[in-house]
Design a protein around this nucleic acid. Structure first.
Lengths: 192, 192
DNA sequence: ATCAAAAAATGACCGTGGTCAATATTAAAT
DNA sequence: ATTTAATATTGACCACGGTCATTTTTTGAT
């Protein structure tokens, strides 16, 4: 019934978000402090939590924004149809996902919805990532003995695996893209 | 040189661990509070952090203990050599990994070492999981066109993917084991 | 313009993980 | 038995995310 959002609300919210972006630009994601954000935005701490359920909710918004922008770019180009091209197309996305360990952990944590009511921006992003990859795979030179949907899920799983190992000193010898290439070649190559 | 660990140290540490296990038995992992643990163990809060770098470090120890015990059991039996048997053999491990969302998140976060010096109990566990699966795969009826090592990495990636989706309301229709079976059949089945 | 109800903002306060200078205990040397 | 240096323990304290009763602002009706 009555939900005419006040202009003030939008302004405060936008202020908090851009303040947060400023703070992150200076010190990165992990170092962000709510206190610092509200000071930069010129509001009280309580206001922050009136706009975002918790600190992670703001992070979700900021990360999803960036990720969707990178995916926009990838989608704007000619659809890749080989493993190296797919990896290249997704490179900016994957690269951003692993800028900080903290970021990667957040993404994984929020990559799925715990409850229907809780589908957040990051879960939506992953859904979109999945759909984009699936579209590419439909016209790509890949195995056709299993559903494209399954192939796309696998791409996601392997991408996450490769990103995990990027943070792991035990497997630091191989680069992320090289590792993903090995995975995807084995996963997507048509059965002979 | 000089590192004769005092008996007292061992006793305090053991006391903290068993106190923590008691606390967890009552309320689960997520609800564990350091304060509660030190009270149960009859020591001061500072003592806790003299024994464990942080709360997560204790969690790592407790989780790895359990996980290794389940893997011990799996390893004691006859090596599985088909996809359903492999899934069945790992079921207790996977099941424990997903008792709580909090637990799963911790496991993922610590599944890799950030630095060589930081290889924790959970990273060791995952290394072991990988080796065990690889051993099984060597004598199993699976594709042989890619290295067994790669197949084992894939199993891990798909297992994590399937576990992630277990917490995701968007994909709650299929059960964990069913989903993993679909993944692994596509991943491991010999190319025809 | 005035007023009442809804919406938004405030900041003192709390819970909990983690720190550290001070204190107590242990082990080894004499 | 005393002394001493290394080691372990303590608990007051801090940092930071998050809460909520109170106050301020906005909106719409009169």
């Amino acid at each position: 019934m009555q939900k005419p959002i006040q202009k003030r609300t939008l302004k405060t919210r936008a202020g908090l978000i851009s303040a947060a972006e400023g703070v992150i630009q200076k010190g990165g994601y992990e170092a962000l402090r709510v206190e610092e954000v509200v000071q930069a935005a010129g509001v009280a701490k309580g206001t922050f939590f009136a706009h975002f359920r918790d600190k992670d909710a703001l992070m979700e918004i900021l990360l999803a924004k960036k990720l969707n922008a990178y995916l926009d770019e990838a989608e704007a180009r000619k659809p890749p149809n080989s493993v190296p091209d797919i990896i290249a197309a997704l490179e900016p996305v994957h690269s951003f996902m692993t800028v900080e360990r903290y970021v990667f952990d957040l993404l994984i944590r929020y990559s799925g919805a715990t409850a229907i009511a809780e589908i957040g921006p990051i879960a939506y992003f992953f859904e979109r990532y999945f759909r984009v990859v699936m579209m590419w795979l439909e016209d790509a030179d890949v195995r056709k003995d299993v559903p494209t949907e399954l192939l796309a899920e696998g791409v996601q799983a392997f991408a996450i695996q490769a990103m995990s190992l990027r943070f792991c000193a035990l497997h630091a010898s191989t680069s992320f893209s090289d590792r993903l290439k090995v995975y995807l070649e084995a996963w997507l190559t048509p059965a002979k």
